[in-house]
Design a binder for these strands. Structure first.
Length: 746
DNA sequence: TGGCCGTGACTTTTT
DNA sequence: GTCACGGCCA
């Protein structure tokens, strides 16, 4: 280890901030420091290490294991967990203090959407003007800042925020009735629990005397409050991160947490790790050249001693097919040189780009995997099966129950369901409870009552198995529900290949249940001191809860498995923290990287630049950047503009290859920025835009919602407008690209 | 009640 | 290209 690494890894007490550039060995430092603490006699159960993905947590656990001498095999109680899993666990343990039942559901985006739709109905907000997505993002932003519905309502002053507050309140009501939380709630409710409950707080403070946080630049305010609440008692907070790799600002991450760490924790030991052990010289220099264009940044030099290596290759291709073929060709060439497939990755800004790449890799006979851990669980058949399991685990989860009550079709159609829902509302019952008294529901025919009765019968039978079983029965139980619910038969019956695939997926879910291991902390029962408690065998109910929770909290990155002999395809976001010999980044075009949605502000553009930086620095020895002169976007062939980031890469580290034929990219440039060309449907020229949205116009933006135009100013061939959005603030938008709509009545 | 078909709206990144 | 929804018919 280098002296700075050594200093960081052997730090014992007090706050520490490790500014770790890409490839500077930060995982190494964290794992060594944990091992150091344990070797120095700190009991393992006093250490808490928090990460963002399960994969990172798992790797950290393994590497700590490998570092510890055999004589220290007892690491009982050491908690290495993701933030979200840690919070979920706290909420289950202290459920009674937060007004939840321990079997609460964790809603994913789809569940949130249906809950919000219902909330908009309840709040009498027309979903034409108030889309579930925009409401959810407003709610999510509020929660990340630790504002719950009441607080938000108190602060709501204008029409827009008051409407959001109504939706927010209705949405919270639904979650509460369904004994459910969303992702943001895991953090929000834990933070509030720690703030308002001194006993729980001091319990956690007493237990976790040493707190470590990885990827600290991506923490949001809620996460800061949680970590601070635990660490404030002793100040032993050790954080590792890199402001230049902050790429989750859109999700509420607050770079301020890392930039202002030393102010919040006086006496912080700050150690910058600038030496890169991963990449060769040209790659480091090119990436550094790029990131230096960011203004809001702590200056920090990155250097390598691995020699110059190969220059970064920049390839101009004709279209996305051609680009994908170049990628496949580069992969083949690297493989021929002896590089293993698992040491190669293809990175893109948006998932939609993976398709062409898959086609061309498949065509070339190159094995590949797509890093989308969430994709499997998002499949219809899997969501259905999980719907059953969730409804069984948490019988008041109406969102889950209504999803599956008539899948497969069992004569409980929309009319019946409406009637039962009305009954539930009147009697203040959950949907499940209302189904149980179907006989008393007004307007239900004998046939419907009978169908409902049959369903309720199966449901209760499963439920009693669940309540009486134990851990080992989990896979059998999952299989039983899949079979007896008729899900399996439904897909088998369809007879086509699709149906067989779905059955195979359902079987894979059973395998996942069989391979599922209860987290060690969970088995130890309490959070008190390490020894003395012999683990009781978890009940089937507890096992199912833990299984469902682990599924709810999977990330795309968890699916990255470099032990497979395959090239990995993934988004730039999912690539963070990983490294490969060969990295191909595709689609370096304006609108893609930087993404079109980021053209609206300096902060957003800088985040895109950091994203590009993260991608480039994944590469150890070969970095290929490419772009296509034209690309098919939703069926339409479109000319592209090279990414403005390309001009920021120092030329001496590049090797440019022009396979697009003409070499006329630059000449096309002026045409592309002509708004008439970019948006042919709108016509009328830029003057038209400016006159259509004079200052004072009330407008709607697809992302920011309702706002008022403050001023218009010409900007070359286009016009930029300052628009103040309710509850969001003022944004500078290019009228020609911002897809603004006038709101009637203004 | 259930399944089929057409339309149209929307496409960033994710714990 | 993709999904979600509404309308229509058996």
């Amino acid at each position: 280890m280098t002296p700075p690494q050594q200093a960081a890894a052997s730090h014992l007490d007090g706050p520490a901030l490790i500014l770790a550039g890409p490839g500077s060995g930060k995982t190494r430092v964290i794992t060594r420091r944990v091992a150091w603490l344990l070797v120095n006699g700190i009991p393992s159960w006093q250490v808490l290490a928090l990460t963002f993905t399960n994969k990172a947590a798992g790797e950290m656990r393994e590497r700590i294991d490998a570092l510890l001498p055999d004589s220290m095999s007892n690491r009982r109680g050491l908690v290495v967990s993701t933030f979200h899993a840690f919070c979920a666990r706290q909420l289950r343990t202290h459920a009674e203090h937060v007004g939840l039942e321990p079997g609460f559901s964790i809603y994913d985006t789809a569940d949130q959407r249906s809950a919000m739709k219902e909330a908009l109905n309840l709040a009498n907000l027309d979903s034409g003007n108030w889309t579930p997505a925009s409401m959810l993002s407003a709610v999510s932003n509020a929660k990340n800042e630790l504002k719950n519905a009441e607080l938000f309502e108190q602060e709501a002053s204008d029409f827009y925020t008051r409407s959001v507050a109504r939706a927010f309140r209705a949405y919270e009501g639904i979650l509460q009735r369904n004994n459910a939380v969303d992702f943001d709630d895991l953090l929000l409710r834990t933070a509030n629990l720690l703030r308002t409950n001194p006993e729980v707080r001091s319990q956690l403070q007493d237990r976790f005397r040493y707190v470590l946080i990885d990827e600290y630049q991506d923490t949001n305010h809620a996460q800061f409050v949680i970590a601070d609440a635990i660490a404030s008692a002793h100040g032993n907070l050790f954080v590792v991160g890199d402001p230049d790799q902050s790429i989750y600002g859109w999700r509420g991450a607050d770079v301020g947490n890392i930039l202002e760490f030393e102010e919040k924790y006086p006496g912080t030991l700050i150690i910058p790790l600038g030496r890169n052990f991963r990449s060769t010289g040209h790659i480091v220099a090119a990436a550094s050249g790029l990131i230096q264009n960011n203004r809001r940044r702590k200056h920090k030099d990155l250097h390598t001693e691995l020699g110059d290596g190969e220059p970064v290759r920049l390839c101009y291709c004709q279209d996305e097919r051609h680009e994908a073929e170049q990628v496949a060709e580069a992969v083949r060439a690297a493989a021929a040189r002896g590089v293993e497939y698992r040491e190669m990755a293809v990175l893109y800004r948006v998932n939609a780009l993976s398709r062409v790449l898959e086609d061309s890799l498949r065509g070339a006979g190159i094995p590949y995997v797509i890093a989308r851990g969430t994709a499997f669980f998002a499949r219809k058949e899997i969501k259905d099966a999980l719907g059953y399991l969730r409804a069984l685990s948490n019988p008041v989860d109406d969102v889950a129950l209504s999803r599956i009550v008539n899948v497969p079709a069992r004569q409980i159609g929309s009319r019946t369901l409406k009637a039962v829902e009305r009954h539930a509302l009147h009697r203040n019952l959950s949907l499940g409870a209302a189904l149980e008294e179907a006989g008393e529901v007004e307007g239900l025919g004998a046939r419907a009552v009978k169908s409902v009765g049959a369903f309720v019968g199966s449901f209760q039978r499963w439920r009693s198995i669940l309540l009486n079983g134990h851990l080992a029965q989990l896979p059998g139980f999952v299989a039983q529900v899949i079979t007896e619910s008729g899900l399996e038969a439904m897909h088998l019956g369809s007879g086509d290949e699709d149906g067989l695939d779905r059955v195979a997926n359902l079987n894979e879910l059973v395998s996942a249940a069989a391979e599922f291991e209860m987290p060690a902390e969970e088995r130890e029962g309490g959070d008190a001191d390490g020894d003395s408690m012999e683990a009781a065998v978890p009940s089937l109910e507890e096992a199912l809860r833990a299984f469902l929770e682990s599924i709810a909290l999977v990330s795309d990155q968890d699916a990255v498995d470099q032990s497979q002999g395959a090239v990995t395809l993934m988004t730039l976001h999912a690539a963070k923290g990983l490294e490969f010999e060969l990295v191909s980044m595709v689609g370096l075009e304006e609108g893609l990287l930087p993404h079109a949605r980021s053209h609206e502000g300096e902060h957003e553009l800088e985040e895109e630049r950091r994203l590009c930086y993260v991608g480039m620095t994944r590469s150890k020895s070969a970095l290929h950047l490419s772009l296509a002169a034209s690309r098919t976007i939703r069926g339409q062939r479109t000319r592209t503009v090279p990414s403005s980031f390309l001009g920021e890469l120092p030329e001496e580290h590049l090797e440019v290859e022009r396979l697009d034929g003409s070499g006329e990219f630059e000449d096309d440039y002026s045409i592309e920025y002509d708004p008439e060309f970019a948006e042919p449907s709108r016509g009328g020229g830029s003057g038209g835009f400016a006159s259509r949205f004079p200052a004072g116009t009330v407008v709607r933006h697809p992302q920011f919602g309702i706002g008022t135009v403050q001023s218009i100013s010409p900007r070359g061939t286009v016009s930029s407008a300052r628009v103040s959005f309710h509850g969001i603030g003022t944004k500078t938008l290019i009228l020609e690209y911002a897809r603004l709509e006038r709101v009637h009545g203004s």
